[in-house]
Design a protein around this nucleic acid. Structure first.
Lengths: 136, 136
DNA sequence: GTCTTCCTCAACCGAACGGTTGACTGAGTC
DNA sequence: GACTCAGTCAACCGTTCGGTTGAGGAAGAC
């Protein structure tokens, strides 16, 4: 099966499942309780819960006949971690671009203006490098 | 087609596409450039880029024959916003539970111990309310 | 025991997904 | 004009996904 991150993203790609997570953030709930608002069979809801569980977003315990579903918020950090990393990188890239533009002299034509040379190929991996890969 | 949030999550549910995002955070790239590391056809990569574009994660401009792909980091905020909201709610719920446990007297039997009453229904929507829905 | 409640398993179905191949377009070079 | 480069469009194919129905299991209630 897919890697952890893929499972988490895929699990949250469904509006019904996102809504379940939203409701489980407020309180644990049984499957039939969860199913109430949606116009679908109990089995379908059970499947959705299973997807969330496989993604590690949710756990179930046994409590008499009930099977309360509990939100495991930790996994969400895995995701925000990933997202934040690249958001910051992209932002940084923007900032550098702004610096370059700011350092340009008022008239562009002549070669090699002052601040420009050191801004071009700083940390961008050599093109054609192996995939930047999943963050560890 | 699906809502914006679903498209973003779905787009990032694929490892190849996440890798593309990771690389685009470092520098814009053309499709064939992007395709290089993966053992798949150019058309497949083009499709992946289209998915990212439909999710608003990426944009393309025209530049001579090239069609450089550019990461649009803003949409990532949409996601972290959603995630953070429920992570915090869940955390808050834990904190309140801890408070309740901490406020219990050493012998549980009698009713209404001191600090307990004010911890029950502060911002929890009435149960059975309409689906907590997509955050606006 | 029987009965009810809560839930899961299994099989099926249509739609979407991730990939392929082949034909094509747009822009630049000769 | 002919040709190449970069990329897309269209049709197809196998697998996964989100839902259904029907049968069945586990834990009380009677």
């Amino acid at each position: 099966m897919a890697d952890a991150l893929s499972r988490v993203f895929a699990a949250l790609a469904d509006p019904t499942r996102r809504d379940m997570v939203a409701r489980l953030a407020l309180a644990d709930a049984g499957v039939s309780e969860l199913a109430e608002p949606y116009g679908m069979s109990l089995q379908a809801v059970s499947k959705h819960v299973r997807v969330l569980e496989d993604a590690g977003l949710v756990s179930r315990r046994r409590e008499a006949q009930r099977r309360p579903v509990h939100l495991e918020a930790d996994v969400l950090d895995l995701m925000t971690g990933w997202v934040e990393r690249f958001r910051r990188q992209a932002e940084e890239r923007y900032r550098r671009l702004d610096d370059v533009l700011a350092s340009l002299p008022d008239d562009p034509p002549d070669g090699a203006p002052d601040g420009a040379p050191d801004t071009d190929p700083p940390d961008t991996d050599p093109p054609g490098a192996r995939p930047t890969g999943e963050p560890a």
